[in-house]
Write a protein that binds this DNA or RNA. Structure first.
Lengths: 205, 205
DNA sequence: AATAAAAATGAGTGAGCACTCACTTGGAGG
DNA sequence: CCTCCAAGTGAGTGCTCACTCATTTTTATT
């Protein structure tokens, strides 16, 4: 009876991600995970020694996944492209946006847990944040040297861009009612526009 | 023996904020709150019916506090100032930065809980987010009409600014090691600079 | 100083829940 | 068809922890 080719372990992981992201790790009972995964409670503990192990397994797998997606992919896009910087930036933000949105449940779980668990925060910093920042800063530094970008602190620029995108995603995820995803492209273009040209009106010709 | 004029209720609240922000609501035991507050465990339940009531009391008080600080104060600063917009913006970001940093524990608690508890999220949106956004958007809209700002969607501008500041604060709070708060002023000036003038180099004269 | 009322205490209780384990089921190999 | 083992089960267990309450301590009142 190999119904769906989705392993028991995966069923448990998927159910856990969904429940952890909805209700948080502590408020999720192992009995609920079992019910949602369609397995008996005892089965969970044949695959994971403790409930916390489920969380750590999710976090570890996800961080591996993201360190690829955030680092390998953008490297190619950014460093081997002949497009104007403005477009590279828009492309980059757009597919980061999509990646984060698509995996929002799992990111929410990691983010929530990182707030109170130093170990998870460290993993996140070591495997994702530092390298992402480095690439972003390098991209900006190159732009400065090519005379495309103004000489501003790369860290600040990258951090602000990231904050802008994250707030957009947060708004869409937590309050999806108003406009939905229809003008995401426009939103991202506007953000690029703000960062490239600023908000100050330039009356002088 | 009125040692310090700090009431038992306040001692409990303060201990709770500290512990909730460090370890999260669920992982904090009432026995720990009691020890940290310097009272017996039973005393807690003379002031709060349940542990959850402590949390809700913190959240409610904090939201009241912030809806004042975020709305009344900026209204005066922003709408009755003769300074150039650039300076208003810098002032505004600076004291928002300070306010958030100073109250980071409590904001972290509310933020963490808001991620998984709809009721708290709703309160936050209703009493703080909506009005803050409105004021921000109005400020920007006025600027457009006065010809100071470019005609961009106010919501996007305000959201991005907020995201930039929040990421700065997050970095400082979670990784305070490197440079500490010494160049916060410079960071904020840079953010204002980015938003006002963009990052694109302008070679033409 | 005596009395009453309010506040504080902390050992005890029971409910909830992560985890165990003796047992059942499914299916591969002979 | 039987055997055997891995995979799965779920009632049961014990521990943790929020909450209670009978008792003690503090404060206010006369």
């Amino acid at each position: 009876m190999k119904k769906d080719d989705i392993s028991t372990e995966e069923k448990i992981i998927n159910a856990s991600i969904e429940l952890f992201s909805e209700k948080g790790f502590d408020s999720t009972k192992t009995s609920e995970i079992a019910k949602n995964a369609g397995v008996a409670e005892g089965t969970i503990f044949r695959y994971f020694k403790t409930k916390k192990d489920i969380l750590m397994s999710i976090v570890t797998k996800a961080i591996q996944f993201f360190s690829e997606k955030f680092i390998v992919l953008p490297l190619n896009k950014v460093l081997h492209s002949e497009k104007p910087e403005e477009e590279i930036l828009a492309d980059l933000l757009k597919d980061r946006y999509e990646m984060i949105s698509k995996n929002f449940s799992i990111i929410k779980v990691i983010g929530t847990e990182a707030l109170t668990k130093e170990k998870i925060r460290e993993k996140l910093v070591e495997h994702v944040a530092i390298k992402t920042l480095e690439i972003g800063e390098e991209f900006y530094q190159n732009g400065i040297e090519k005379g495309i970008f103004r000489d501003l602190p790369p860290r600040t620029v990258v951090r602000s861009l990231f904050g802008s995108i994250m707030m957009l995603i947060a708004e869409q995820q937590f309050f999806p009612d108003d406009k939905k995803s229809k003008d995401v492209d426009k939103e991202i273009s506007t953000i690029v526009e703000i960062f490239m040209n600023g908000i100050k009106s330039r009356k002088e010709q």
